[in-house]
């Protein structure tokens, strides 16, 4: 573990803003330095992680985002769950789940569900592929890479695939007493999607990506 150090403040060093970094969590003014892959740079004041670059992190995030996108397609189109009771059976896909609220006053929730479970995770995957693809290959950033990465980061709390899968687990237990439940391929695709998302977010070092985007910006 390494730490960014506070700069020796003088008029001259204050002028060279590029050699400084402000901790995004507590605003402590620190001397910026290159953090090697595998190192974790923390703030001496609030101990938040500022940068944690990993070897091949960009390539890994790119691959995981692409895997996530493929799994999302599978999760949306294959059957998700099937219940049967008293000779009747009902098969539901992810789309049916999203549309569960589409009757009466609960209609707005349909859109919210679609956004939280399918649309926002997909948008995040696409944005990350768009931003990090050229970075992983060592190219210049794409034209709208900066706003795209900002959107990807802003949407992070709102992409709720992980939360949804826990909800599925709870629902399965609730239904189990009432009817027989069979799990479809889309369920496993979605579980895979959650694993991929968590791995991807673990490799992500936001400040490192921003610095890379800035350093690679064509002059």
């Amino acid at each position: 573990m390494s730490v960014h150090t506070p700069p020796k403040m003088s008029e001259d060093s204050a002028r060279d803003l590029d050699s400084l970094i402000a901790c995004p969590a507590c605003d402590a003014l620190l001397r910026d330095r290159d953090v090697a892959a595998g190192e974790t740079a923390t703030c001496p004041r609030c101990h938040s992680v500022i940068e944690a670059p990993r070897r091949l992190a960009m390539t890994r995030i790119l691959m995981l985002a692409m895997a996530g996108l493929i799994l999302m397609v599978a999760a949306v189109f294959f059957p998700f769950l099937e219940v049967s009771a008293a000779g009747l059976s009902q098969r539901s896909t992810l789309v049916d789940t999203v549309r569960a609220f589409s009757g009466g006053l609960t209609v707005p929730l349909t859109y919210a569900m679609a956004a939280l479970i399918v649309v926002l995770p997909t948008v995040r995957f696409l944005a990350l592929i768009y931003v990090l693809g050229p970075m992983a290959l060592g190219w210049y950033p794409r034209r709208f890479a900066v706003p795209a990465f900002r959107v990807a980061e802003a949407l992070r709390p709102w992409a709720m695939a992980e939360v949804f899968i826990v909800g599925v687990a709870v629902a399965l237990v609730k239904v189990a007493g009432l009817a027989h439940v069979a799990i479809g391929p889309a369920f496993w695709a979605f579980v895979g999607l959650v694993v991929v998302t968590v791995l991807k977010d673990n490799f992500m070092s936001r400040v490192t990506v921003w610095k890379t985007l800035e350093a690679r910006r064509p002059a």
């Binding site: 769950l81 219940v83 789940t97 599925v168």
Partner: peptide, 9 residues
């Protein structure tokens, strides 16, 4: 949402 979509027997 899951219960409502699933349990329509």
């Amino acid at each position: 949402a899951i219960l409502a979509s699933l349990v329509q027997l």
